[in-house]
Structure formats: C-alpha cells, structure tokens
Design a protein around this nucleic acid. Structure first.
Length: 1174
RNA sequence: GCUCAGAUGGUGGAACUGGUAGACACGCAGGACUUAAAAUCCUGUUCCCGUUAAAGGAGUGCGGGUUCGAUUCCCGCUCUGAGUACCA
C-alpha cells in the first residue's frame, strides 16, 4: 500500500493514548531526564504553525532520550488563569472557567494530532483548585518567612520573632522595608500584637505595603514592571499610569544577588542571561553624603544629601548636585528667591507623562534651588539643582554631577553655565564629556597622579574615615507587585483583622474562587471579588495564634501614652510630616476649622493610640476623618480603627474628599452641629484595665473580610515544574521522593518573551523553596533553549485606488472638495476593484508613463463596467476621475489562496464580495475579468515578512497542513526550516520535499506494487556505511539541538539507500529507530510491519555506532595551488604525507597546472588536502 | 545611545576544531510518460566571460590583516533584527 499517513497517524495516536506509552516511571533504575516546554496559556485563537515549533523540538529530544535509555519526564499542562479569558467573560458574561475549558479542549486536540509523546497522566492546570491549593500554600510559606542576610537565606518568621523576644532588633541583618523600628527585647514584648504584626510585615517575603504601582485603568488592575512596555500594558496595549496603592508585593530584591550569581551556573542563551542581568541591574559604586551648607533660621530635617555614584573617583570634578524633582528635600532646600522657578519646574514635570519624558530625553531642563552642599573632600560649595533626568526611584534620587565625565551632566553644565573641571590628564572635554578611566588624576588633591584603581580605593577610604560615604552596591530591580484587581486568578489566602493581613488556616486550603454575578469591579471600585456574597473568613485564624496576641491597650493610660511608646513617638513624627504636607482637601477644611471658627479648638494630624486622626476636638471627643474613595479591605481597617477610637471616648465622622471639594461650607456646618450636640468627652475608658478587642469579639463566629485582589498570572507558573513530578499528590505539592529523583528540568524550551517575567520569578521561588528545604536544586532549569519566532509571510495584491470628483454642481463648487483618505476609500467601492500584478506595480513606482496608462485604462474600464449612478444620480453625471488621486495600494491578501506567490484568481473571486468582479492586470500584461473565460496568465503577488496574525491574512494553520501531508511531514518540515533558535518566516513551499522524502522512505520497505517486502540478506558495505553515517549524525545533531541538519542527513541517507536499492531488514530496522523521534507515526507502522511488537519502538535501544563501517581506504584529495582547488586525486589513505607529495608531483595533470614551475612548498594534511605554493 | 545576535545563490539553509563554499530542500528551466492535466521520474541550475565538449575569472555585507590556505580567527566600518534606556 502507498503511504497512507492519515490512517497510520490516527492509529498510532490512539494506541499511544490507550497504552499510556509515554507515562514516566516514578521509580526507576534508569537515569532521569526531564524535558519541559514553557507553560502555554490556552488562548481561544488556537495554534498557528509557529506555536508547535518548540514542542516538536522538545518531543524529538524526549523521544531520543528514551531510546538512549533514560526515564524521561515530558509533561504538558496549562497556565489557565489569565486576563484574556476574563476580558472575554466581561464581554459575554460567560464564566472564564467555561471558556478556558473549551480553549483547552481545542488546544489538546491540536496537540494530539501532532503526535507528541507527553505523559498526559500528569497534566496540570493552574486554575484547578487541586493545583492552586499549592500555589496558595507556597504563598503562605513566603508570608511566614523573612530573609536573613547573615545566613544568606530565607528563614521562618519564627526565628525572627524569637530574636526580637531575646535581643530586640539589635543584631538583625535582614532584607526589609526601609523604615523599621529599633527596639529592645522588653520593648518588643511590650508592644501590642497589632504593632508587632505591623512590624513583622516589614520583613515578610510577601507583604502588604503602600507602594507606587503601574495602574492600568482600562484593565482595572495593577501590572508588574515586566507587564508594562513603554508605558502601555503588554496585554492589550492600554495606557498605564503611576498610582499609590496598598498592594501585595514579593520581596524578590532579597534574592537579587543570588539571581545574578546563579546565571553563571546555568546553560542558557547569552542574550537571555543578559536581559536578566540588565533587569537585576547591579551596579557597584559608593554612596556619598554631601553636607548641606547651613543657612540661618532654616531647620532641616536632614543635614546632608546622599548620592549614589559608580565613579566615586571623579568626586573632585563635581561642580553641582542634581536631585529629582520628587526628592523629599526639594521644598526645604528651595530658597525664597528660587521658589517661583522651582515650583514652575515641578508643575512642568508633573504635566509630562512618562512617555513625554522619555521622548524629551535630549532637551536639557532643570532649576536651581538656591541652596548649596559642601563637597566633603575639598570643601567647595556645590549648587543644588533639580532636573527630571534624575529619577526619584533609582539610587537615592540624587546624583553628584561630574560634567567632565558624564555626558548628561556635561550638557546640563553647558546649559546652565556651570564649570566643567577635568580630573584626568587624558581627558578630552572640548565637545563632550569623556568618561575614560585611563590616565592620572589632576585637580584632585590627594589623589593627583594616581590611576583609577588607586584613586577609587583612596577616596572610598577617606570617605569612610570621614563617615561620609562607603562602598555600596545598588540594584535596579524592584520588589514585584503581586496583587491583581481581577477575578480570574488564585485567591490570596489572607483575611483582614485589625486592618492587618492574617493567613487563613492551612486546613482551609484551597481557598476557592467564589462565584460572582459580573466580572467587573464593584460600584465602589473594589476588585471583582468584592461582589462575592458572604465571602468572609469564618475559621480560626491559625493553629497557633500569632505571638503576643493580647489586648492592644492594656497599658493605655491616656491617649498620649498608648500601648507602645516607641510607636507613639514615631506617629508623632509622621503627624508632623503630614501637617507639613496637607492634601488639598485637608487644607481647605483646615482653613475653615482652625482658630476655633467652630467654637472649639480643633487639632489636625493628631496621634491617638496607634492612629493619626485627620482632625480632632479633644474637648468634645470628635474625630473628623477624610477619605478618598476606598477599597473594601481598607474598610475592615477603618472599622477597627473607629472601634478603637470609640473605645477611647471619641466619636468619628467621615467625609470623602469629594464632599469637601463640592461643599466645604456644608461639611463645616455638619461638623459644627455635631460638636455642639456632643457632651464633654468621657475619659473613663482610659483606665486601661479593660480587655479590649478592637473588632468586637473573638474569632468564633466572626467573619473577616478576605483579600479581594487575586494573584498575578506568574504565581501559578513559578513552581509548576515541581507539580509534574508528582501531579496527583493531595498531601503535598510534590513528595520528597519525587523531588529528590527528578530534581530539576534538564531541558527547557520556550520563547524569549518570558526572560524577565516567568523565568526570573521561577528562579526566585525556586531559591526560596530551596532555602526552606522544600526542593533540592538552587536553579530550576539547567539548560534552556529559546526557539525562534516563526514570522508570517504576507502576500499582497496591488489595488488601484481611485476617486471620483465632481464638477461644480449648480455653479456651486462645494463638491470640488479635496477628498480625504477615508472618503476616497469609500468611493473606490463604487466600481470594480482593479488589481495589478507585481511587475506592473514596480512599473507604476518607477515609470511616469505607466501611471498615465493606468489612468486611461481606469477611465475606460469604469465607463465600460459601471454606471456612475446612485439614488441621486445627477451627482455622478459628468463625474471625472482625478488623476492626482489615483494611487496603487498594496493590500494584504490571504496567503491560503496564493501558491508560490501566484494568486489563485478563482479563489480570490469567491473569497470576498468586493473581489467578485475584480479586473486583474496579469504579469504578462493580459487582463483577467469575471466575464473572460479560458486559460489565464499569472498574477504575481508581493511578499513581506511580518508578524503572523489574523489581521495580516498570513496565518497558516497546522490543521490544514496535517490534513494535506500528515503530522510526520509537518514535524520534520518545521525542523527542516532552519536552526531552532533562529527566527524565520514561514513558507509552506518546501513542505513537498519533506513529504516526498517520507514517501521515499516508505517505498524502501515496499516493492513496485506497494507490497511490503524486505530482504534478510547480509547488508552490503555501502548500506552499512549509509546507516552508520546517519546513526552518528543524528546523535551529534540531537545532542547539540541542530535538528535541521539531521533532517537533511536523513534525506541524504534515504537517497543513498534508494540508489543502492536497499531493502535489507537489518539496515531498515535500525533506520526506523533512528528516524522514530522525528517521524514517530510512520516508524511505528514500519516497526510493526517488520514484525516487532507494537509500542516497543519508543523504548528500543538506539543503534550503536560502529566507526569501522566508515573507514575508507582511499580519499579524493583536493589538489590546490596557492589555496585554489584545481582537481581531485584519489590517493590511498595508507600513504604518508611524504609519499603523497611524491605521488601528486608525479601526476601529469598536476604538472600541467604547475606549468613546469617547481612548487616552493607543498602542504599535505593527511586525509584533508594537498596545497602547493608556487 | 548602550548591550546582544546576525548578514552565504531566486528562496529556506549546509559547511562541526581554519582545509573541495553553496550539502539538503524549494523554486525555476529543459526532457520522459500522458490525448491532456495532475502525480511520478530524469537532467541542469552561484555569477561573469565563453564553448562542440572546453578553458578561464570573480565570489560568503564592505575595507584591511594573520595564514600555505579564511564563510570560520583579528581590526575597522555598513546594514538588519532583538532587548534596553535619562540607572548616576
């Protein structure tokens, strides 16, 4: 029978599924090998031909490793939480779980028909509760951990608490928030639980903190840095803005150094590592404090400005300091004389969006504050400027400017006429800064004459001695925002009590995603989970209550002396800050309330217990609070706060900012009425002997609000490779034995788009899990390969766009308007489309005469083919075509109706209505019209390489190709296309060659009548040579992931064996094994035809290469003269170079080439070449 | 701007440690089979000059270097792609 790929492929796919042929063994004496593809998101669009590229490569590798005797783990699953399903749900109201399910089914069907050897018994889905239970569990471990810098690893938060209890905060070297408290052991123990928990939150590896986030209003969620590209969201391309929000974050910065170091130990593509290095952004330098020049009467909150620099050696070249406009000291540093200028500049920068700021990079702008710092090493006065080229978010938000060494500083200095002092004798600073490190220092006091290394060391030493600086390492990487204000993600296993986050009990995992009515934020702007009814935590908070969970106010004697004196002191500091920087609404209200305008003394930003009240009347016990509109999770905190304040004898009234802005007077009246109505404050509560629970009861029966945001897309994919090791375990995320056996991923294949997202977060979680001894390897992916992108190859037709203008109607020239592009396109629909072939398009571009031809042609065709009439027909009477508006537009045409750039005109006509009556000028100049019959010439389309996408009509679907050629052909063709890592355009043209090859292979096993027939004779030498060449070639190629070259070699081998008329069983059987990882279906079929047991091919031993079969006794030496090959000579390989030389020189043809001359030198490389120098 | 990767026929690409550049495949041209088409098979196919077959010459983005010999190594440049960006 001829090669029937359809039947064969279906048969074997079924067989593999039924027999679980590719199930990996949990326990095995074989060595393990773990081949993984990057977790796919099952999108609704289905696969295009570019998607399976990496899967085919990894599958070939996995199959090859099985043949080589490895126990191979090759799983597949779905990263099934994510934005697209949710966006779709918002539009259609369909539950994302349903659409996701449907998408997975499509995805699976498409994967199955390509014949992958996945172990489907281990399939995972991040959106399944069995799976996200463990994502939540890992989140809990992160919450319960801190990073101990001394041990350089994460540890349980218990060890931190123990340390605090025994030694206080002294001796702790941790990665934490910047502002942490300092306290003794006794002070710690004296703190209320709330204060303690608040403090611990600053150390936890996942924490809640008010931070500046990338807010995307269109998606209604925050995004991580890697999800933002050039100020727009990566998914959807919506604008992103900066916003302060209470957010869950992951303290990935704790691992910055280890993430960087680890890169040196893994076999990844260099560009990928480079991207991670850039993202981590380590820079070694020094921090230097520049004392602020004292000014009479002005009290500063700080008497120095700290800068970070990587070139501390240039400190003698500092001629000014630049701080970011957002720098906290700007207000204090601005002198009255400079205030207008500075304010104007700040307003100007605020107006600029991120994008403007980037685009504006070239223009110099800034403003002088009027203040000076002192250069600590030469005591010179250094003016302080603000400028937006200094970023508040990097380093300290301040730079020491060295115009001689830094181009931005140089431009700034030129612009503001600031001095430029050279500091190295080799510097050339006439036109631009020179950042050289060569030469000896000048103008640099005690380092004059030293070189770069010496000077740097000397300066750092000096600064350290002065206690004004030290060597420092800075990282660009920020902590990763972990919450998303979206529905379709893992719920965060956290509830809120006293405004503080608490973990739910492990017994209550998984915390299931609740059902909601609409997948939209609530009216009050809470995330979608705010819609879930009754979604509150009822259980016990944890098995062992958090340390120190006692009454918060057992020491409270008065509102000033709260439970925690240290904390209270800090609050007073914050209050002072707040008073200095009132918000707009606070300021409006304060102007009305101050100076007893209500009849009572009002204080603003006043610390009470652990809170700061916006406004308070101590006399009447009334607290006035201003709120932005807020989040449900803040409400829990607000309620707790109100309750506590009530307890201290205060009544709380709240206004929103909007209320104040709209009617300040009304707000004032309400407050006044309230004050008048209130009695004197009851102070009896301040005895402190009462046990107070701020939430009004014990946990039993109480409902605590859950966290309303969900986890980001990368949560589930940051550990999934461990789940595959033990996918069905319901006791642990994976068993210890499984992890110890499989350890890590040996080969990971996927796209480079995950470089700074998934691959960085995964390494982070892996290191964390290693620290907790949950896993055994420091790095999860030993070897990684980026498959290149498959680009689309678009085809174009060249459409004549024409417009019709009208003469003045009724003496009115209104109609003679300039026709806009849009109108022009509308008009071009009134007649038939006219398309010109590629040659004529080039003619149109380069030849004025042809334009005229087209114009005349068009006029004639139009008068012939259409009547210029419509409902108001007079409009078209006498209409004329405007030559100036005639244009030829390259227009995408569906690549599926084009073959070898030749358009299928019939298919074109039936594809779209507006092409039905099209007139085509063909390559040979003849014309194809709908009425004209007979044979037609060719219409040649234009070609361009672009992204593969529906809108460009260049999507090639693997389903179609499999239907035409089969999966084996598709697999081999995708590999044949070129090196795996390289991006390349898809062109279906070559696929025939691969198909022919498989048929030729099939035919080796069959006689002319297509009957299966092999011979049992002893193989010939030539046959064995062909076989062993390919055995070795495939081994070499697969090991170095050069799949394209082995496909070529297969073709060569089959061509050779066909020429040898080989149908030898021994040869063919080994060949089947060698080819089976590339084209598994056809090989399985032939394997059983050869009489082997079905299903045994996948685990057959790979044939052993025997070099003896390749040994030649002769070699056709290329004979070259001065490096140019002239001829070949067959010479026995047993001859030594000397004899070869003699043999070659004796040859008559060689003598002819030498033309009687004696060669100066003869180079003979045995088995390679003979070269003569004349 | 910086970093990285790359540039070989009409096309995808091969040449692995410096040793016959263009393997393999597509496309194209010619031929066989056929009434015809499809399929299949055979031959040719880097460019230039040229021929009866020849014989020459040039040639791996450009310019130089090292070498008996360079697509491969070194230096400088051009272009393309990717990443990143006032990162101090």
């Amino acid at each position: 029978m001829d090669y029937q790929f359809k039947d064969i492929e279906q048969k074997w796919q079924q067989f593999w599924a039924q027999n679980q042929t590719f199930k990996a063994q949990d326990k095995s004496s074989k060595p393990k090998y773990y081949v993984l593809d990057m977790f796919p998101y099952p999108s609704g669009a289905g696969l295009h031909v570019g998607h399976p590229l990496g899967y085919i490569a990894s599958d070939i590798f996995a199959r090859y490793k099985r043949l080589k005797g490895f126990n191979v783990l090759h799983p597949m699953g779905y990263d099934s939480f994510g934005l697209p399903a949710e966006q779709y749900a918002i539009q259609t109201g369909q539950h994302p779980a349903l659409t996701t399910e449907a998408n997975i089914a499509t995805y699976r069907r498409q994967l199955d028909q390509i014949g992958f050897s996945f172990d489907w018994s281990r399939e995972v889905r991040t959106s399944s509760p069995d799976y996200y239970k463990w994502t939540q569990w890992i989140f809990m471990q992160l919450f319960n951990s801190w990073y101990n810098k001394a041990a350089d690893k994460a540890e349980s938060i218990d060890t931190l608490v123990k340390h605090f209890e025994q030694h206080g905060s002294a001796g702790i070297n941790a990665v934490s928030d910047e502002e942490v408290l300092t306290f003794s052991a006794d002070e710690w123990k004296a703190k209320s639980n709330i204060v303690q928990q608040n403090e611990l939150l600053k150390y936890r590896l996942t924490y809640l903190r008010e931070s500046t986030v990338n807010w995307c209003p269109a998606l209604g969620t925050v995004l991580a840095n890697d999800e933002v590209k050039d100020g727009f969201s990566e998914r959807g391309g919506y604008p992103v803005e900066q916003k302060k929000m209470m957010q869950w974050s992951m303290r990935i910065t704790a691992y910055a150094e280890r993430l960087l170091q680890g890169l040196d130990k893994i076999d990844w593509p260099e560009p990928l590592k480079e991207m991670q290095r850039n993202w981590i952004g380590k820079s070694t330098g020094a921090s230097v404090k520049f004392p602020i020049e004292s000014q009479e009467s002005k009290v500063k909150s700080q008497d120095y400005i700290e800068v970070f620099t990587t070139r501390v050696d240039t400190i003698f070249g500092v001629t000014f300091l630049v701080i970011a406009p957002e720098h906290e000291l700007v207000a204090e540093l601005t002198t009255p004389a400079q205030k207008t200028e500075i304010d104007a500049y700040i307003v100007q920068t605020k107006k600029k969006s991120e994008l403007d700021r980037m685009a504006d990079a070239k223009t110099v702008s800034g403003a002088f504050t009027g203040s000076y710092v002192i250069n600590p090493l030469n005591n010179e006065r250094v003016p302080i400027y603000i400028a937006d080229y200094v970023l508040a978010g990097y380093g300290t938000g301040a730079v020491m400017a060295v115009p001689s060494g830094d181009q931005r500083d140089f431009l700034f200095a030129k612009h503001f006429n600031l001095p430029i002092v050279p500091i190295l004798d080799t510097q050339n600073i006439v036109d631009e800064a020179d950042s050289t490190k060569e030469g000896k220092y000048i103008n640099s006091a005690f380092v004059n004459g030293l070189d770069y290394k010496e000077a740097t060391a000397a300066i750092v030493a000096k600064l350290e001695e002065l206690k004004l600086g030290k060597a420092k390492i800075n990282f660009r990487m920020r902590d990763a925002i972990f919450g998303r204000q979206r529905y379709w993600g893992e719920p965060v296993p956290v509830y809120f009590k006293d405004g503080l986050p608490h973990l739910i009990s492990e017994d209550h995992l998984p915390l299931l995603l609740p059902e909601i009515d609409k997948y939209l934020p609530t009216e009050s702007g809470e995330p979608p989970l705010g819609r879930a009814e009754g979604w509150v935590y009822q259980g016990a908070p944890s098995k062992s209550p958090p340390v120190g969970e006692t009454s918060l106010s057992h020491e409270a004697g008065s509102y000033r002396e709260t439970a925690d004196p240290v904390y209270y002191e800090q609050l007073k500091d914050f209050s002072r800050d707040n008073r200095n920087q009132p918000t707009q609404t606070e300021d409006i209200l304060w102007q009305l309330l101050r100076k007893e305008q209500t009849g009572y003394k009002i204080r603003r930003q006043h610390a009470i217990d652990q809170y700061i009240a916006d406004f308070v009347s101590l006399e009447k016990g009334l607290i006035i609070e201003l709120d932005g509109h807020h989040h449900k999770l803040n409400k829990e905190a607000d309620d707790a706060r109100t309750e506590t304040l009530n307890h201290f004898g205060f009544e709380v009234i709240r206004f929103t900012n909007d209320e104040v802005l709209q009617s300040p007077q009304g707000v004032f009246e309400t407050i006044k009425e309230k004050l008048d109505a209130l009695p004197e404050r009851d102070k009896t509560h301040f005895t402190g002997d009462q046990k107070v629970s701020p939430t009004g009861g014990d946990l039993e029966g109480a409902g605590y609000a859950y966290e309303l945001s969900t986890m980001p897309g990368w949560a589930g994919s940051s550990w999934y490779w461990y789940r595959y090791m033990d996918a069905n375990n319901d006791k642990e995320f994976a068993s210890k034995e499984a992890i110890e056996y499989w350890k890590d991923v040996d080969l990971y294949i996927g796209g480079s788009e995950h470089a700074t997202g998934h691959l960085l977060y995964s390494r982070f979680w892996n290191k964390f899990m290693k620290d907790l001894n949950l896993v055994v390897e420091e790095e999860p992916f030993k070897k990684l390969i980026n498959q290149g992108m498959i680009q689309g190859r678009s085809n174009f037709v060249y459409k004549i766009g024409y417009a019709i203008s009208y003469p003045p109607v009724y003496g009115n020239d209104v109609e003679d308007e300039i026709i806009s592009e849009k109108r022009y396109n509308e008009l071009d629909k009134i007649g038939p489309q006219i398309l010109i072939s590629k040659k004529w398009y080039n003619e149109y571009l380069n030849n004025e005469g042809y334009k005229e031809f087209l114009y005349n042609f068009l006029k004639e065709e139009l008068s012939k083919n259409i009547q210029l009439k419509s409902s108001n027909s007079s409009m078209y009477d006498g209409a004329f075509i405007d030559e100036n508006i005639l244009k030829v537009l390259p227009t995408h045409v569906d690549v599926n109706i084009v073959e070898n750039d030749i358009l299928d005109i019939k298919k074109l006509r039936s594809s779209r209505k507006d092409y039905q009556n099209a007139i085509l000028i063909l390559e040979d100049g003849s014309i194809s019209s709908p009425t004209g019959g007979g044979r037609e010439g060719a219409y040649i389309c234009g070609v361009e390489v672009e992204k593969m996408s529906k809108s460009k009509f260049n999507v090639v679907n693997p389903d179609d190709l499999i239907a035409r050629y089969g999966a084996d052909t598709l697999r081999m063709y995708e590999m044949f296309l070129g090196p795996l890592e390289q991006s390349k355009p898809w062109n279906t043209n070559g696929i025939e060659g691969v198909f022919k090859f498989l048929r030729k292979f099939w035919r080796l096993f069959h006689n002319d009548a297509w009957e299966f027939k092999v011979s049992d004779a002893e193989p010939t030498k030539a046959e064995l040579k062909s076989l062993h060449k390919i055995i070795r070639k495939v081994e070499e190629d697969v090991e170095r992931f050069s799949f394209n070259t082995s496909v070529s070699s297969f073709m060569i081998a089959i061509n050779e064996l066909t020429d040898l008329k080989c149908n030898n069983r021994q040869i063919l059987q080994d060949l089947v094994i060698v080819l089976s990882s590339y084209a598994p279906h056809i090989c399985e079929e032939l394997w059983t035809l050869l009489g082997n047991e079905a299903g045994t091919l996948s685990y057959a031993p790979y044939p052993k290469f025997n070099p003896a079969f390749l040994v030649e006794d002769e070699f056709a030496y290329p004979i070259s003269i001065n490096g140019k090959t002239k001829m070949n000579l067959n010479i026995s390989l047993s001859l030594e170079p000397k004899d070869i030389e003699a043999y070659v020189l004796a040859n008559a043809d060689v003598q002819r080439y030498l033309d009687g001359k004696q060669p100066k030198k003869v180079i003979v490389v045995k088995g390679r070449i003979v070269n003569m120098v004349v």
